[in-house]
Simulated assay, not measured.
Amino acid sequence: MDLSEDSGLQPILFGLFLSMYLVTVLGNLLIILAVSSDSHHHTPMYLFLSNLSLIDIYFTSTTVPKMLVNIQIHSRAISYVGCLTQMSLFVFFACMESLLLTAMAYDRFVAICHPLHYQIIMNPHFCGFLVFLSLWFSLLDSQLHNLITLHFGYFKDVEISNFFCDPSQIFYLACPETFTKNMVRYFLGDFYGFVPISGIFFSYFKIVSSILRIPSAGGKFKVFFTCGSHLAVVCLFYGSAIGVYLFSNMSSSNRKDAVASVMYTVVTPMLNPLIYSLRNRDIKNTLRRIHSRRVKSESVVSIWYVGCNC
Rank of each mutant, 00 (worst) to 15 (best):
N28G: 05
G15C: 10
H125P: 08
Y80M: 13
Q169E: 13
L47C: 13
Y264A: 00
H125R: 15
S240P: 02
S261L: 00
F191G: 04
Y305E: 15
P269D: 04
F194D: 13
E5M: 12
G239Q: 10
I12K: 07
G128V: 00
Q10L: 09
K220Y: 10
S251Y: 07
T265N: 09
F92P: 02
G218E: 09
N146C: 10
F155A: 09
L140D: 13
Y245F: 13
R281D: 15
V25L: 10
C165S: 04
N182I: 00
R289P: 02
A103Q: 05
C165N: 02
I120R: 14
S79N: 09
Q10F: 11
N70W: 14
Q119M: 14
K181F: 04
V25W: 03
S134D: 05
L68Q: 01
P11Q: 03
A105M: 04
Y172M: 11
A174E: 01
G193F: 06
C95E: 11
H41P: 05
F59H: 01
G219A: 02
G193H: 03
N123P: 06
H125Q: 14
Y186W: 12
A258G: 07
S4R: 00
S248D: 12
R293Q: 14
V184C: 04
V195Q: 09
D282L: 11
I31W: 00
L116I: 14
L101W: 02
R255N: 11
L49K: 00
V244A: 08
R281S: 15
E177R: 09
Q119F: 12
H41A: 14
M250P: 10
L30W: 11
F152I: 00
F152Q: 02
Y276N: 05
P269Q: 02
A111R: 08
R281K: 13
R76M: 13
I160Y: 01
M104V: 01
E159F: 12
P11D: 05
L212Y: 11
H74D: 11
G128R: 03
L130G: 01
G82N: 01
F164N: 01
S248N: 12
D157E: 09
G239A: 07
L33Y: 12
T180Q: 07
T63F: 00
L33Q: 11
N146W: 06
H40Y: 14
I283A: 01
I120M: 15
I12N: 08
S37Q: 10
S88V: 03
L188N: 08
S142A: 12
C113T: 07
L246P: 10
N28D: 06
L101Q: 04
T62Y: 01
Y46R: 02
